[in-house]
Design a protein around this nucleic acid. Structure first.
Lengths: 233, 233
DNA sequence: CACGTTAATATGTGCATGCATATTATCTTA
DNA sequence: TAAGATAATATGCATGCACATATTAACGTG
């Protein structure tokens, strides 16, 4: 083995990876089963299992009971995005964060969201419009709807000191959510707020979170020109 | 416990999750250690370990040896994107995939990429320009550079039947890579190829993959208007 | 021969245990 | 008292074993 030549599960994973990369095991081909590999490496089956489980998680091998383990035919690229709260993202860049609340009111949910974001009929939601800055330069424009049934305490928050973003993370943890990423053209408002030329292509993210069946918040973040969301695979 | 009231590691994970959501354990607070939890749930420490490891992976708790496990202060949203090869993405939508090769030649690497994509000085790379279709409607515009030192067999491929995308997945597996996502305005070429109005905001992705220290390919994908990349968290 | 039953098999998971390792607290000693 | 050695402790990891479960292959039986 190369580096971790111990019988650690990571070491075994590396060796299995090597065999896949070097085409010793072809894509689609079945690889020896756990017991055989355990014997070959002189370790417990549990250890091999751990390594194989990890490879399966990253999509490189496909496992099925009784059918065995085979090298994935089309290993999907699986990228993990870490989306921190904006303040932390800005501060991690070594810049100073601040935000300014542009609007805050209670209103009925706009019909556009009725499908994805189901609140009680006729109930008002809290609407917030916020501009986030990095070193006094606009960074993100945020529009947010908060379901007061899921986070009643939000009614009394001004969200001037602490951003809704951050407050919700601490006060209304979600169980699951949907995220989507897309591009939008800067309209007049956006171009003014984000210091972009009208029509500029802006990177945007939309997110809905729920706690159980109850929607918590719908937020759309539109990033200033030049923003890139990066990750490693 | 709620649903999986067995002493399975998933059941224990659910219960731990519930306690975090319900603020029984506050953010930043230290939670009981594995041995205690194991005793409480009447299971082996290994099982609790498995559950905690999973929570740590998703960023909800932070673990340190000796220091114990504590609920994360700012649980980062961690989203896993699955990026399949384009053909599979299109076919999964129930549409018919095809692609057409627009350009293919050997050229020196453009200076813009010299930083991120280091090939031998003066070596030519294979440049490909491809348009991907879904049901005969343009779907993605692709510009790709292939390092022939990493994938020499690419020199003899026409990439007319099988896309470079797919061919590389099968023939030049990568060990790691960088991905970034951003927005671009459609210039004249793009708007013509992708059937978009000039200036339209388009979602784009750039990806570099390596095998060890050797760069394999640099690709920029620009999606037709309206594209959204989605995932669940 | 078709079809349902049964057996074989590979992975999935749980348990008890022991040692490894990182980190913190405590105790020495100059 | 400050600094270094040492002990205590919580998590990390490996082992060996047993049983669960999904899936395939083999087998009967009408």
């Amino acid at each position: 083995m190369t580096l971790a030549d111990t019988n650690s599960w990571t070491g075994i994973r590396e060796e299995l990876l090597r065999r896949i990369h070097d085409r010793i095991w072809q894509p689609g081909e079945q690889i020896p089963h756990e017991a055989d590999l355990a014997e070959e490496f002189g370790c417990a089956r549990t250890t091999v299992n751990r390594a194989l489980r990890d490879l399966a998680e990253s999509g490189l091998v496909v496992r099925k009971r009784r059918a065995g383990t085979r090298v994935a035919l089309n290993p999907p690229q699986r990228a993990t995005l870490t989306i921190p709260i904006l303040r932390e993202e800005v501060e991690a860049l070594g810049r100073t964060y601040r935000h300014s609340l542009l609007e805050r009111d209670f209103r009925p949910l706009p019909p556009m969201l009725h499908g994805a974001f189901q609140v009680s009929l006729g109930a008002d939601v809290l609407f917030l419009k916020t501009l986030h800055f990095a070193d006094d330069r606009p960074y993100v424009f945020e529009e947010r709807y908060i379901n007061l049934e899921a986070a009643p305490a939000a009614r009394d928050m001004t969200f001037e000191d602490v951003s809704a973003n951050e407050w919700l993370v601490h006060n209304a943890p979600y169980s699951h959510g949907d995220i989507s990423f897309f591009a939008v053209n800067a309209d007049k408002t956006l171009s003014r707020k984000l210091d972009a030329s009208t029509g500029a292509a802006l990177f945007a993210m939309e997110r809905i979170t729920w706690t159980g069946p109850l929607p918590i918040t719908h937020v759309r973040l539109i990033f200033a020109p030049g923003y890139r969301m990066r990750t490693e695979i």
